[in-house]
């Protein structure tokens, strides 16, 4: 996948905060662009895709940061 325009670092912050940050940052990327959130909270693995489904955005997938933390990538559709 191409590199996201914006990456949010939410390590050490429990859900729902990473999802709240994602929602706040969405308007800062253009429609069609990617937005990523780094989170070590296991709930984010379920809640980022669920947020995409509920808010009509596209969940692109999960990869890892250079230091091995999960990073969840979202594409802005609306």
């Amino acid at each position: 996948m191409s590199e996201p325009s914006v990456e949010l670092d939410c390590r050490g912050i429990p859900c729902p905060r990473p999802v709240i940050e994602l929602a706040k940052a969405l308007p800062t990327v253009e429609v069609g662009e990617l937005l990523a959130v780094v989170s070590d909270d296991p709930a984010a693995r379920h809640d980022v895709p669920a947020w995409c489904r509920m808010r009509g955005q596209e969940y692109v997938g999960e990869d890892s940061t250079a230091d091995g933390l999960p990073r969840y990538v979202v594409k802005r559709l609306t």
Binding site: C15, D41, A43, H46, R53, M54
Partner: peptide, 24 residues
């Protein structure tokens, strides 16, 4: 079933298996 209310850090395995939102 949210993680913060459980005895572990893991959210509900039921909500996770359904693909449902686990927080709130």
């Amino acid at each position: 079933g949210s993680a913060c209310t459980a005895s572990t850090l893991e959210p509900s395995h039921v909500l996770a298996a359904m693909g449902a939102l686990t927080h709130g």
